[in-house]
């Protein structure tokens, strides 16, 4: 079972979280052309190895987290809040 160290709640089972997706995607501006959006939405890497991904602590503090996880071993290298200000606060806390 994957266990994720939520910076706000502590280490919890993955069943408390919802998987988001690739955290490295930079979404285009809303008025960007369809070609840019197509790239962001449909042309994704299928990463073998360390991947930055988002997880939502749905049954917890509701923070969206950026998790560095190996897609081969499930090893988790780092976890931080996606929102930069929240990240600062939770970092100081821990």
């Amino acid at each position: 079972m994957i266990r994720i160290k939520c910076p706000y709640c502590g280490e919890r089972d993955h069943s408390e979280f919802t998987y988001g997706g690739d955290a490295s995607i930079k979404y285009p501006a809303l008025d960007a052309p369809a070609s840019e959006w197509t790239k962001a939405i449909f042309f994704r890497e299928n990463i073998r190895g360390m991947q930055k991904e988002t997880w939502h602590h749905t049954n917890g503090c509701r923070l969206w987290l950026e998790v560095e996880r190996s897609t081969i071993t499930h090893e988790i290298k780092s976890v931080k809040a996606c929102h930069p200000q929240i990240e600062k606060i939770t970092k100081n806390k821990s």
């Binding site: 919802t18 988001g20 955290a23 509701r62 969206w64 809040a81």
Partner: peptide
Amino acid sequence: MSWLEELLQTRWT
């Protein structure tokens, strides 16, 4: 609800 949270925490911070 999750969608709005995602937008606010990851895209439109």
